[in-house]
Simulated scan of single mutants.
Amino acid sequence: MHTAHRENVTATLIVAAPAARVFAVLADPTTHSAIDGTGWVQDAADRAPLTEVGQVFRMDMDHPRQVNGYYKVANQVHVLDPPRAIGWRTGEEKDDGHLEFGGWSWSYELVPLGPSETEVTLVYDWSAVPQHIRDHVGFPPFGPDHLTNSLQHLAELVAVASSDSTNK
């Protein structure tokens, strides 16, 4: 299920895993390319787990509208409430190391439905994007199924993580 509003789009899926396990997968930047529903996220340049608000993690990206396709983004964690919520805003790192954010963010809200199920809501919000960026980039910059695809990928990763931990 997904809903679209003027400045955000959301999708919700029930995942067959405890919230802590879902959160652990989301807090691991190395899983983000497998979760991504667009194929734009390639690899985690920063591989440390997300553990605090303000933490920055960079991702290698590939998008046909970029020069040569490849670019990096710098994400900054702005929500971290294990195992209930995690989110980051996306931007870029300038040559001088300064971070500049475009005004959009990703967040996941996790609601335990019992010991082995979690309702996960993914929110892509662009309400803080300045008009000059909106004029250049259409929002959202992906189709309506992107968030649903991402949540399905997350559910598959969590299932693999669950079976790996029970097989050890």
Rank of each mutant, 00 (worst) to 15 (best):
D164S: 15
Y108L: 00
V25H: 01
S33V: 05
E7N: 13
T30H: 05
I35P: 06
F23G: 00
G39K: 07
D81N: 15
E117A: 10
T10I: 11
L157V: 06
D36K: 10
A34S: 12
W104R: 02
T30C: 05
N149R: 13
S127L: 03
L151C: 02
G91W: 01
D36H: 09
V22M: 02
H32D: 11
E52G: 08
T3Q: 13
R21C: 06
E109S: 12
E93Y: 03
A159T: 11
H78R: 15
A20T: 15
L99M: 11
T148L: 07
H5E: 15
M59F: 00
A20H: 12
R47W: 02
S105C: 08
D28S: 01
L80C: 03
A155Q: 02
A74Q: 03
H153C: 01
W40P: 06
P141M: 07
H78L: 14
R6I: 14
G54Q: 02
Y71W: 14
G91F: 03
L147T: 09
P64W: 11
G103D: 01
T90N: 14
W88Q: 05
H132I: 12
F23S: 05
A20W: 04
A24T: 08
P130D: 03
G69C: 05
P115H: 08
E109I: 09
T121V: 05
A155W: 06
S163Y: 07
S33R: 09
Q55G: 11
Y124H: 15
D36Q: 08
Y124G: 05
H2L: 12
V53M: 04
A19C: 02
W88F: 08
K168W: 14
T12F: 01
W40C: 08
D43C: 01
E52M: 06
L13M: 05
A19N: 04
A27M: 00
E100C: 14
S162K: 12
D145K: 10
W88R: 00
P140W: 11
S162P: 07
R84D: 13
D164M: 15
D46R: 04
P83R: 04
P83K: 03
A161V: 09
T12R: 10
E100P: 10
A44I: 03
T90H: 02
G39V: 10
L147F: 14
A17M: 02
Y70N: 12
F57H: 13
